[in-house]
Design a protein around this nucleic acid. Structure first.
Lengths: 140, 140
DNA sequence: TGGATCTGTATCCGAGTGTGTTACAGAAAT
DNA sequence: ATTTCTGTAACACACTCGGATACAGATCCA
């Protein structure tokens, strides 16, 4: 299945906030860069705010800014904030428990799933928002 | 998004084939253990066959068996065979190229995506079907 | 105080897709 | 020839993501 793009958009949003640390950005302004609807941005900002990565202010001149320095925000935190689910899903019905193979399949796959997730987490932990922002700036 | 369960089902199928190396298994028999429809199994077997992991025979007493020993089948091959797509998607519309941040976002995210995929691939490469089958047998 | 701005939700629509199901042509064994 | 099995095609259903409108509440400012 095609995965969703929430992580990609969240990183994009955070990169924008990192580039304007001294001012609040409005959801519609961010939406202009991400090329989507402002509500989509606000939904994501809600998740990022819940994860304490950003802070928002309502009202005129409101908007959102980072809650910490970009070098203190880890991409693994972002991944967790927008919970993208698992890499692969277990079969919804579950295997047939009368079958000797099927009986133990579920736990084996579940363990494998956790291990992969852990691997992704470790990989993303190697990057901070500052690292990424640096790439955005220098890349041609 | 909830990912699809094709990888999980594929592994399950291969574990069954590994447990019956001396005989062909029919798609409906496998479907009984995976707890799904035989056509779903045949679709997956088609992908696995295309990746040269299994061989099928049509006709009476037909069915499918592994094309190699379980210790020569790597889980990363299975992952590639049932192409589960990417861990996260890039935004379908693409970022706004008039924005200095948006302009470079795409390539940065694309590189990150490749890196994660590579990590998953490496993790899965650590396991053969034989390793996994062993776990299925011993797990309680 | 009143108007403007912005967030935070609720709600709905459309498109895409994964899963399940039926149906059927073709291949192989008996 | 009949049976059994694969390989597809075709369709329905459910789910979810992205997009859009609408509106209450908060905040600033004139």
């Amino acid at each position: 299945m095609a995965a969703n793009s929430q992580f990609a958009m969240a990183v994009h949003i955070l990169a924008m906030l990192a580039s304007s640390r001294d001012e609040n950005l409005s959801s519609s302004y961010i939406a202009g860069s991400v090329n989507t609807n402002a509500v989509v941005i606000r939904r994501l900002l809600g998740q990022l705010g819940h994860a304490k990565l950003v802070v928002s202010q309502t009202g005129a001149n409101g908007g959102t800014r980072l809650s910490r320095c970009p070098d203190e925000i880890n991409l693994s935190e972002v991944y967790q904030a927008v919970n993208c689910g698992e890499v692969f899903a277990l079969h919804s019905k579950g295997p047939n428990r009368d079958c000797p193979v099927g009986r133990n399949m579920e736990s084996v796959l579940c363990n494998l799933q956790k291990e992969i997730d852990h691997g992704i987490y470790n990989k993303l932990s190697q990057y901070t928002l500052a690292n990424l922002f640096e790439k955005v700036e220098t890349e041609r």
